[in-house]
Nucleic acid binder design. Sequence first.
DNA 1: GCTAAAACATGATTTTTATCATGTTTTATA
DNA 2: TATAAAACATGATAAAAATCATGTTTTAGC
Lengths: 235, 235
Amino acid sequence: MKASFEHVECKHCSNRFKSVFCKTENDMINEIEALKICSSIKKGDTIFREGSYASGVYCINAGKVKLSMFGDEGKEQIVRLAKPGDIIGYKALLSGDKYSSTASALEDCNVCFIPREIFLVILQKDAALSFEMMKVLSNELRQAEEKITHLAQKPVRERVAETILFLKETYGLDADNIVNVSLTREEIANLVGTATETAIRLLSEFNKDNIIELIGKKIKIIDQQKLTKTANLYD
Amino acid sequence: MKASFEHVECKHCSNRFKSVFCKTENDMINEIEALKICSSIKKGDTIFREGSYASGVYCINAGKVKLSMFGDEGKEQIVRLAKPGDIIGYKALLSGDKYSSTASALEDCNVCFIPREIFLVILQKDAALSFEMMKVLSNELRQAEEKITHLAQKPVRERVAETILFLKETYGLDADNIVNVSLTREEIANLVGTATETAIRLLSEFNKDNIIELIGKKIKIIDQQKLTKTANLYD
DNA sequence: GCTAAAACATGATTTTTATCATGTTTTATA
DNA sequence: TATAAAACATGATAAAAATCATGTTTTAGC
């Protein structure tokens, strides 16, 4: 159930200039403003579901969101993590298809729904938005292809380390070097592409080796260099 | 070395209407025509290389192209296969970055190079092209995410079967149900994300089980239904 | 604060898949 | 067409990772 929350006008949204709408003119922002539907999403709630018809995109105003695909036996694979300023659900909208993944809130969120029609109209009118959109898609695609390569070629150990670094890049660090997101071990496994037990084991191993410190669901990065080396990444 | 080949005018190009330029107006097509550089690429030759500066996109006029990323020990992962009418090299161009993969010809090819500037200018002017571009990107991204899920969750056997079906979808069948592409076993392995020996073993197994028939490098599909079942796909 | 469920943890075992070894066949080219 | 190199094939072995089993801790809801 989506409860509406107090509107922040799009043009004053703190995420505006770090979002895909950074180059979009005020008049178009106002068109979106007029038609958007904002809602509060509780932690764990589903924003949209794989296979359902795409009626618009969602702009994340606050909170963190995971996008998952479910394999044959219903096993989750997390294919993307989104943060405030990100939009989700655009793939389906652009390809005119159904949602290919399920979006659910990792914590309480505020999201703004932008109906299909207005988004497509503005995309037609605003070359800058289209271009930003293409940039976002290109970056996602490059990342996805890297992930494919790593899944195919790197051992789980390296991929777990890499995932911790990815979480750091995506959500940043709190004071005290703590990665600013809480995922269950199962979710980490579903992001890495491994069994939950394997992820747990490797995390405790990294903990023992003083690469990270496990503080409940939080991960504190103790030795960034060692972590990068464990991930076998040098760039 | 790229030798030029006899120009086919873009507006008369047989691939035009099945390409991303299907909705692009004649005057813009002519602008491309004026600046494109066509060349013949020999089988095995590199069209562009991962890490080099993206100076434009390539439109494939004839032939088949593989796009590969190279992992830590230089191991190839094929991330995309392209066919006539497809464009390659757009990710790097759009994100303003270097090529993230290496393109090489699987057979003799004719490709048309469209310089960065004109492509970007037309992208700005032509909302229809931008939209088609976004559709292409969205579809690629969805496919990539599916591939991630399958790499993480499906056993090699299913992925090999799936890859044969993917090759069929991409390049079609000759008369007599033969998949219209020749890849080495190593390339098939690098597409599946497995060891060459494992790919070889599974292909011979499928051969023995009368699912496919191996005719040199060609694969003939004997039992499509069994193949789909082996891939654990029902859609 | 009690209780059930979920999440976390860890050892033992099995399965899957990669690697290694070796030989044959095909392909390219001198 | 001779010859080397690449590609293909297959058995044996090793390594990696999943699964199974079981117990503990944490979390959420009454």
